[in-house]
Write a protein that binds this DNA or RNA. Sequence first.
DNA 1: CTCGATCTATATCGAACCAATATAGGCCTC
DNA 2: GAGGCCTATATTGGTTCGATATAGATCGAG
Lengths: 174, 174
Amino acid sequence: MDVRTICLGILTRGEATGYEIKKTFEDDGYQHFVEASFGSIYPALNRLTDERLVSVRSEVQDKRPDRKVYSITPAGRAVFLGSLMKPLPEDRHRSPFVFAMLFSHLLPPERVSAMMNVYIAQSEEKLVQVRNGEARNPGEAFVNGLGRAIYETVLNYIRTHRADVETQKAQAAE
Amino acid sequence: MDVRTICLGILTRGEATGYEIKKTFEDDGYQHFVEASFGSIYPALNRLTDERLVSVRSEVQDKRPDRKVYSITPAGRAVFLGSLMKPLPEDRHRSPFVFAMLFSHLLPPERVSAMMNVYIAQSEEKLVQVRNGEARNPGEAFVNGLGRAIYETVLNYIRTHRADVETQKAQAAE
DNA sequence: CTCGATCTATATCGAACCAATATAGGCCTC
DNA sequence: GAGGCCTATATTGGTTCGATATAGATCGAG
């Protein structure tokens, strides 16, 4: 599931510029489960163009760089769907917050509390965003609901268990 | 939160070889939230050694390559704790399964069902693993519990909502 | 009305990172 | 005793990220 495949997928929703593809992650709540940077999107689009999996239409604008609008080709659509028929790579998750919690006993309690507060605030923001996202098909509704369920679980868990790590008492297993 | 920092963190638990650091992710349930490959661990340990943040002890074994046991130095411990005092990078999550679900309406229902089954099986496995993991401090208990809560939520959500995407009926928002 | 901030938009570079592969002996099972 | 798995280090090629550069548009605050 590389960036090229991700770009193809987003282009099945309609034509878009590289910038708009990136924005899709942020605006449409996709970013909770998949993301990519400009540094990989633009090269990916160039290569997809070379391979005739997408086509480009340059909207010339004077006093501005051209707006390059990409569309998926029939070949691109076939390649994309083909990649979804093969076994999917497993999820990968990197959470510096959770990793830091493994070392809470080495940190000042105020620092642990501060981390908790920041992480809660971020999760609340994402929950609001995923709640506001509207779905244009059953798949998107499914994904929105999953995001909502996860963020609610995380927030609820942290709120009910943060005291266990904020005070350096002996651990409570459950 | 680069691999060097992650290695330092694991070495605060005690000395270890590069191989054992990698295994920690798999065995101790750390992998649900953080992971690294050999291709980044070994160079990271070399650089940490150069920077005197870890020390190496070579256990010579005849007819085998040396076993290099790494230990964190006081300087390394200070650097690690210092990095936890700075603002943490945000979580990053890439889930090919969830991404694929966004395009379920373009796929044969059997394929969607197969994806569901595979993902459920994988999540169940991870849930078992996280349930069996024992905690050696409150932080690890907190992290284990969080993992458990998330996997339970995911499994429950998928089981109760998979029909919405497996049959191509009109979407049910809630 | 102008200054700074934010947005649109493309692009590149170096560093970081992953996946795969190579090597190699030991151990266990069938 | 053959094949497969485990320990263990290491490298390489390709992918990806994070930061930065550029540059005009737009818009709110002062």
